[in-house]
Amino acid sequence: MTTETAVTHAATPIQSRASATQAEKPDTPQWHNIKAPDARTTRTASVSVPAGRRELAAFLRNPNALFGLVFLSLMVLVALIAPIAFPGDPLGMVGKPFLWPGQDAAFPLGTDSMGRNVLAGLFHGARISLFVGLTATALGLGVGITVGSLAGYFGGWVDDVLVRIIEIFQTLPNFVLLVVLVAIAQPSATTVSVAIAIVSWPMVARLTRAEFRAIREKDYVVAARSLGFRHPRIIFKEILPNALPPLIVTASVMVATAILMESALSFMGLGDPNVVSWGSMIGNGRELIRTAWYLTFLPGLAIVFTVLALNLIGDGLNDALNPRFSEERS
């Protein structure tokens, strides 16, 4: 159906063709067209330092990425201290309903129609968002990388079969499938995470497969085969480390996407009914949008900034790990 290069584009529009970033090697020409021997040294001069220190430095020098990292850390902190800062059920009624933000010092962000503390909801909502985001991503990455590397490495009929399966899952519209899965399985934090993983692994699998197919042909893999290395060693020690950069970038985007999906599910009333989530807060506030729009506005902001932070991190990682276009930005 759709070609495979496109999928690579999807997750990493920028592939890892090496070149020095301007900040570090100001003396290298950066016209990639120069394919003459002159350019070879410069083009390959800076294939990632394996320790990753240079990438880390490049990442930390990027103000956007740094902002993302700081905000995300803050959110993690919020999620961790939520039970201490706001003990008790955030779904319980604690004050007068419809207190606007700032109206009552005890509820700095106000209360909703049931008198629930909005700030407490936001704190506890961070827990479910991050939990679902991380769990779904971990599961999706695990399955996707396994399937993708098997298909990409072995090729042949293994590839044919796995690609068919990937194709089927990629054809099913993600969110519609997600709704069906959650509706069938009955919503809870776990089923929502698993369902999101089910709809998101194919993207990882395709990306991994494409990377593996490309790297499989490299001479150092051929060398490993001719030296008698066994498949697991080649897969895990030779290919996977080189396939990781785009996958790392994808991971951060996946967490962001998972958080968006969870919030959309909760907004539609398909989230875990026993916990408060940013999406469900918006869903509850939606009927009151004419009178108390802050009830939808505030949890929305929490989603936007968390997702934005993750995407900024993803972009920063991309620039640091695949420094091809970073020169054009800096």
């Binding site: 001479d219 060398a223 008698g228 030779e238």
Partner: peptide, 28 residues
């Protein structure tokens, strides 16, 4: 054994030279 054409593509960029040379010994 074999020696390859492209000196830029025939060495795993994420392994130190020692690792590159040690792996065959371990495997064998």
């Amino acid at each position: 054994q074999m020696i390859f054409q492209d000196p830029f593509g025939s060495l795993n960029p994420r392994k130190s030279i020692r690792d590159i040379l040690e792996a065959p010994l371990i495997v064998h």
